[in-house]
């Protein structure tokens, strides 16, 4: 089986894309923490359910950003292939 340099770069790009998605761990923890706190808040004050939910979703959407950086890098590695230029 002949492996050219191009194949090797493609394979390593795929591995790198997989590694880049480890960035998803952080937002996962953060969003889970936000959801847990929101659940506790609704438990203490069920009347404020609507605004608590809105605030939680907003905070989670902002916390997601760092994970999306990893996703963007993975997309670039696999589809744009900057290392082959």
């Amino acid at each position: 089986m002949n492996i050219t340099g191009e194949d090797l770069i493609l394979a390593c790009s795929a591995i790198g894309a997989g590694i880049a998605l480890i960035a998803g761990v952080g937002p996962g923890i953060g969003q889970g923490y936000a959801a847990g706190q929101a659940a506790a808040a609704v438990g203490r004050n069920p009347g404020a359910r609507g605004s608590v939910t809105t605030t939680m979703l907003l905070g989670q959407a902002v916390a997601e950003t760092t994970g999306l950086y990893g996703f963007a890098i993975a997309i670039v590695l696999v589809f744009v292939k900057p290392l082959l230029w």
Binding site: A61, E64, T65, L68, Y69, F71, A72, I75
Partner: peptide, 16 residues
């Protein structure tokens, strides 16, 4: 950059 990447990343991940 963070404003645009947030929107792009979310929609792009759904599309993918």
């Amino acid at each position: 950059i963070s404003l645009s990447l947030r929107l792009f990343g979310n929609v792009m991940s759904g599309t993918v």
